[in-house]
Design a protein around this nucleic acid. Sequence first.
DNA 1: GACCAGGACCATT
DNA 2: AATGGTCATGGT
Length: 316
Amino acid sequence: MQAHLLVSLVRASTSNPNTAGVTPFHPARCAAVFHVCDYDLETTLNSGQAFGWTCSDAGWTSVVRGRWVCLRQIGEAIHAHTVEPQSDWHWLQDYLQVEVDLGAVLASFPDDPHLRAARSACRGLRLLRQEPWECLASFILSSTKQIVQIRQIVTALRLRFGTPLRAPNGQEAFAFPTAARLAGATEVELRACKMGFRAPYLLATARRVAAGECDLESLRPLTLVEARERLLALPGVGAKIADCVLLFAYGFPTAFPVDVWVAKAIRRFYFHRRRVKPVRVRNFLATHFGPNAGYAQQYLFHYIRTVEPRTLNKAL
DNA sequence: GACCAGGACCATT
DNA sequence: AATGGTCATGGT
């Protein structure tokens, strides 16, 4: 069934009654409200898939598709406001994936006890649709880093190399730096952002992307296998990071990133906590979780991290 | 102070 | 194919 999305636009300063009949909405406003159900914005923005959001009294702010934006959820409404007037909000609807029928996604999960527990522990958790370059670069920086540290590195990168943007009250914000901008940096400059041994990987991949040797937009129409192969050819991109980008940026619904947490969850929940051969795990992952396996992965990740964060290591 | 973090890569078995 | 070492940095 179609997700019932309602986009109502908040009256900014002056309303124009003459636009009725042409479009129900004022063509250019700086605020909008998305009515959503089964959507937990905070959980979603904090779930380790995107690293560019900061929370303040005003709400969650970041730069999406080149626009500064601030979000705040009140009940079943996500309020958004921007600096520049917006003629449409498809860029944000797409990023937030507000039209996805989460109930249908969850219903496609296999009905096993662990996913049932994960579903009730992760109410409203969504997958976003990020921009490929920002997602790819962020996850190159993610290897053996805690989520809080990935955020710190991404923030440092934005401040140091990011594209400046107008923010409210005459302030300045920074979008995630382009591949071209990072390609012109040095490894020493990148290391100053505390990314350590990941610096040469990020630099080399940025140079390939900036040089057009890997056109991230051209991956969109490819199959999962083809797109994965292209990503795996990039320096610093292995199976896990490739799958993150395929799931979080390109929206391949069966991409299934396996990090240390998901590996523990799989072993614990589905293999009696025993050591398993990688090929057995792969066969299991390819068959058990269904058409939205990537979503199931995100639920397992969030579930095992939040519900039992500390007892796990001893238990295993 | 030890252990670990949304890993990739390379050299050995 | 699969294990082990190495690579920075900082949270817990």
